[in-house]
Design a protein around this nucleic acid. Structure first.
Lengths: 145, 145
DNA sequence: CAAATAAAAGACTCTTTTATCTTAAATTAA
DNA sequence: TTAATTTAAGATAAAAGAGTCTTTTATTTG
């Protein structure tokens, strides 16, 4: 499992927001009900993205959360770092105790090739393409879970 | 985080066993104390590897667990599948609901390039090289955790 | 056979993640 | 200013992962 469920929720929410103009506030309630995610739980996750300056938020009527910059400028890397931290991109594949810069495990170097591909993908992929897929699923929710 | 802690324990145990002749029984107690892993917990993990025909086990005096085949023929892929299942190798990167063969998410195809590297690495890497690293760490346990 | 050894199995605890529910604070609008 | 709206914050609970402890079963040895 590459990312946590929370992180998945965050990514889907940003994809959802990419369907709106940048800076346009959308209530978290709308996001949570459209994506079938617990409202209060999503609130906490999106707070992490607000703290990371990926979203902006506004309380009160007409408020909600909004993209802080254009969707194309928000990468998977940004979202994963904000919610799951950097473990995926820097930690030891085998979770070996003592594997670090001083005494890297024998696989560290070889593994870096594979991880490099993962990093590159996450750093060069935004969520813009996901919006349409989510709409398709909403139209046919029983597809293949 | 790519693999679970349990999976890491399993991998380290097989690396440990690779220091013994194939088929030679080693008590789980020895493995657990040398690797600083809870004995009873490790017992359950190694049972998974026994069930997967990666290890063989023998009860009673002189018993323990042993490699069922030569260490070089046991890959990370085998161990991860046996303990964590195939999610890492087949699941949706973004854990999107409804992402599967029928309605793959837009990233599925691109992601497969990066995942292919991960799969290839795990399928072509055995744990033989880890034994020496573990010995180094045992000699200098305070290195860099 | 009896005792010692060691894996297997089961019950239980602790921690982290995920989820729910309630209250507080800020903002808007009438 | 009062009421409605909506994020923020806090407490609590359920589920899963990780770890501990006890009992059972199988095997070997004396």
């Amino acid at each position: 499992m590459f990312i946590s469920k929370s992180c998945s929720y965050g990514i889907r929410s940003v994809a959802y927001l990419s369907g709106y103009p940048q800076g346009r506030y959308v209530p978290i309630r709308d996001i949570s009900s459209d994506l079938n995610i617990s409202y209060h739980f999503l609130t906490k996750i999106l707070q992490m993205l607000t703290a990371a300056n990926i979203l902006i938020s506004s309380r009160g009527a007409g408020g909600g959360v909004a993209l802080a910059r254009e969707a194309a400028a928000i990468t998977l890397y940004d979202l994963i770092i904000a919610i799951d931290g950097d473990e995926l991109f820097t930690g030891c594949l085998l979770r070996l105790p003592g594997c670090g810069t001083k005494t890297p495990c024998p696989m560290h170097q070889e593994w870096d090739v594979a991880r490099g591909k993962v990093n590159h993908f996450c750093c060069h992929t935004s969520v813009t393409g996901l919006k349409q897929h989510m709409l398709l699923l909403a139209a046919n929710p029983a597809s293949d879970l």
